[in-house]
Design a protein around this nucleic acid. Structure first.
Lengths: 136, 136
DNA sequence: ATAAACTATGTACTATAGTACAAGCTCAAG
DNA sequence: CTTGAGCTTGTACTATAGTACATAGTTTAT
């Protein structure tokens, strides 16, 4: 695949594609006679994996480490253990999100409890002290 | 509270405290006669809120916006709607994390399926193509 | 054949979130 | 009354994840 096809299919821009390439996150591209890059179609899976991982809050460095588990230096056992640690990080992040959701729900409830008139006025409670008096 | 008490209680360092202060994330500190800062105890709630928000993947800019909902310019209705949008972002992040967890689970299962001998050898499948053939 | 679109490379710039000094006050203990 | 821990301000530096631009070569459509 040529750059333009890739960036259209993956929804990233040319510079980001190159940036990921310099970071070693992408499969090696063949070169045409004139030096144009020709990536394997699998690059779309790779970019999709990068996106999912980024959305999950992992850095490009971490993503690279996951990608490199395929390398022949890493045994399945080591790879599995690394994956299990990452899995735990994911669970921790989920916990943080549940906590955040709770805080936001409480804030919303506190606003709604003010009724129609209250909703039109400034709200003087703030997130950091609200700590879910509303039993959520 | 004086800086040292705060950084010990909150587990951040002096420079980070000051950095947050310059970013307008912290309550105003009174000054002692000699110019030392004296923060209200509520700073610990604030720092805790910042931590939760950061763990949930929000930027300091976003966190500041949430903190400023208390300002008198914002009605409860507007504040509530902003909170509801943030809540949706949290739900989206949760979805990304579930997706990531699924990928990691599949990788772990794929490794385990190799058995004792396989676990000691390199694993040649990678995350971006594994796409949960294992029915998770 | 020539202009427009596409590509490669290199460099520079941005924003975010800190982290690391350095110089100079202040306060509390010995 | 001095010494060290703690404080203030300012400045500079780092890493991450891009984004923008300039220059130059290549392909494609008219």
């Amino acid at each position: 695949m040529k750059p333009k096809e890739i960036i259209q299919a993956a929804g990233i821009d040319r510079e980001t594609l190159r940036f990921y390439e310099t970071k070693g996150l992408l499969p090696k591209a063949k070169r045409t006679s004139s030096g144009y890059r020709d990536f394997p179609d699998s690059i779309l899976d790779r970019l999709s994996f990068i996106k999912t991982s980024k959305d999950a809050g992992f850095t490009l460095r971490e993503i690279k480490e996951l990608i490199e588990l395929k390398s022949k230096k890493v045994t399945c056992r080591n790879g599995r253990d690394i994956a299990l640690r990452k899995r735990q990080e994911v669970l921790d992040k989920m916990k943080a999100l549940r906590e955040m959701k709770k805080i936001l729900d409480c804030f919303v409830d506190a606003c709604n409890e003010k009724g129609e008139k209250g909703l039109s006025r400034p709200c003087h409670f703030s997130f950091d002290t609200i700590s879910c008096k509303f039993g959520k």
